[in-house]
């Protein structure tokens, strides 16, 4: 009986991939795809979305996959450029927010009771106003535009990750090997760099990847309502908000494709984040 089982296991490894290997491969493929969009979007020049009055209001076709708008601009090119912009803004927002989460999370866990109290109060503070309202407030304060939206995104996405990092650091700090290091007279900084940071890396990476899609969604939402990126930028939020005027004329493609692409980008990031968590987090290993 035991022998039989062993044989089956070997076959599985040889001929097919197990679930984790599949997840790793899909993640890599997805990451390459995303990278491709960013690069292509950055390489596309303004000519691609130049006004072309002969080709106005065209429904999707082979020439214009996503159709054209009321100025004859190719919606496919606009969408790709918009996605590229979304990813870029998302990247800045997520990196900034992750950094804040890391600093405050570490500080709460290592700098004593008072710091911990203040930081958890600060986290509560940010969580007690609806997220979108905070974003609107910050974007409004900074007068809208690129600076306003990026600051808003950076300042509002850190609280939950900060909590995770705080809990994680507390756990590591109480671990035996850290206590021993401390008794050996290693400095706080040394312990932070050699013991705490290495253990935090997976958590930070997962937190970052899962934050990314949220940042992108919030950016497009705020841009959509008019308080985010300026109307001159080829952002998805702008495209969709402009499309509203033409919906009643039946030009559904103006809204449908750009939104669908945004959804796919967000979902791809989300998937990569989830896969990463499954691969890196041992407590989830058998789900």
């Amino acid at each position: 009986m035991i022998q039989n089982l062993h044989v089956r296991k070997k076959e599985e490894n040889r001929f097919s991939l197990n679930r984790r290997q599949r997840k790793l491969i899909t993640s890599i493929v997805a990451a390459i795809l995303l990278l491709g969009i960013v690069v292509v979007g950055a390489l596309l020049d303004e000519d691609r979305i130049a006004t072309n009055l002969i080709a106005r209001n065209l429904a999707p076709s082979f020439d214009h996959l996503f159709g054209t708008d009321w100025l004859g601009r190719d919606m496919f090119a606009r969408t790709i450029m918009g996605l590229s912009l979304s990813v870029k803004v998302g990247l800045i927002g997520a990196i900034g927010s992750t950094s804040i989460a890391l600093i405050l999370g570490m500080a709460a866990a290592t700098m004593g009771k008072v710091a911990d109290r203040i930081i958890s109060w600060l986290i509560d503070l940010f969580l007690s106003v609806p997220h979108l309202v905070t974003l609107i407030l910050i974007a409004f304060t900074l007068g809208g535009g690129f600076k306003g939206i990026v600051m808003g995104l950076v300042l509002t996405h850190w609280p939950s990750l900060a909590r995770v990092i705080r809990a994680e650091v507390m756990q590591i700090r109480s671990a035996e090997y850290v206590q021993i290091s401390k008794q050996l007279g290693k400095s706080r900084g040394w312990i932070a760099v050699h013991h705490i940071l290495p253990h935090l890396t997976p958590q930070i990476l997962i937190g970052f990847m899962l934050m990314f899609p949220h940042v992108i969604l919030h950016e497009s939402a705020v841009t959509f309502i008019g308080l985010g990126l300026s109307p001159h930028e080829p952002a998805i939020g702008i495209i969709l908000s402009e499309s509203m005027k033409y919906l009643s004329a039946g030009m559904w493609w103006l809204a449908f494709f750009p939104g669908l692409c945004l959804l796919m980008i967000v979902q791809t990031f989300d998937r990569i984040g989830e896969n990463l968590r499954l691969l890196l987090d041992p407590t989830k290993s058998n789900d």
């Binding site: 309502i225 969709l240 919906l247 449908f256 967000v266």
Partner: peptide, 12 residues
């Protein structure tokens, strides 16, 4: 749905 922009769903 968790990845769908609310406003896009509204437009649809």
């Amino acid at each position: 749905l968790a990845s769908t922009p609310t406003f896009w769903m509204g437009l649809l």
